[in-house]
Deep mutational scan, measured.
Amino acid sequence: TYTYKLTDEEASRRAEDEWRNRGYDVRVRNNNGTWEVEVR
């Protein structure tokens, strides 16, 4: 499981799409203004 911490929502969406396209399960959540993109 990888977790990315990003401050930019758009960057988190791009990361989400990119990993999803590669067949990974992705979750995005906002934690106090930081976007966490979790990849498994």
Rank of each mutant, 00 (worst) to 15 (best):
N32P: 01
S12I: 07
E38A: 06
R13D: 03
A15Q: 06
T3F: 11
T34R: 07
R27M: 13
K5E: 10
G33C: 02
G33K: 02
A11M: 08
R40N: 08
N32F: 06
N31I: 13
G33V: 01
S12R: 05
S12Y: 07
W19D: 01
T34V: 15
N21G: 11
Y24N: 02
R22Q: 09
L6V: 15
L6K: 03
L6M: 14
V26E: 01
R20W: 03
D25G: 04
V37T: 02
E16F: 12
V28G: 02
N32T: 03
R20T: 08
D8A: 04
N31A: 07
R20Q: 05
E36V: 12
E18M: 14
E38P: 00
E9L: 09
K5W: 14
W19H: 03
R13I: 07
R22M: 12
T34F: 12
R14V: 10
N30M: 10
R13G: 04
R14E: 08
T3L: 12
N21L: 12
Y4L: 12
T1Q: 09
V28T: 06
V28H: 03
R14D: 06
E10K: 08
S12V: 15
V26F: 01
L6D: 05
N21E: 11
W35I: 04
Y2G: 05
R13H: 08
L6R: 02
V26N: 01
R22C: 00
N30H: 12
T3A: 05
K5I: 15
V28K: 03
D17R: 15
E10Q: 10
E9F: 10
Y24S: 02
Y2Q: 09
E9S: 05
T7I: 12
W35T: 02
E18R: 10
K5H: 13
E38R: 05
V26M: 00
N30R: 09
L6N: 06
K5M: 13
N21Y: 07
T3I: 15
R29F: 13
N32L: 06
R40L: 12
N21I: 09
E36C: 07
R40Y: 13
N21S: 13
V26Q: 01
W19T: 01
E38G: 01
S12F: 08
T3M: 09
E16V: 14
W35E: 01
V26L: 00
V39P: 00
D17I: 15
G23Q: 01
E16H: 08
R29S: 14
E18Y: 15
T7W: 12
R40A: 08
V39L: 06
V26P: 02
T34Q: 12
V37N: 00
E38T: 13
R29Y: 14
T7V: 13
T1M: 11
D25H: 12
S12T: 12
A11P: 02
V37G: 00
S12E: 02
E36N: 03
D17G: 10
T1L: 11
A15S: 05
V39R: 01
N30W: 14
W35H: 01
G33D: 05
E38Q: 09
K5G: 06
A15E: 07
T1Y: 13
L6W: 09
N30Y: 15
D17Q: 15
T7H: 13
Y4W: 09
E16G: 10
E38K: 04
E16I: 13
N21W: 05
V39M: 02
N21R: 14
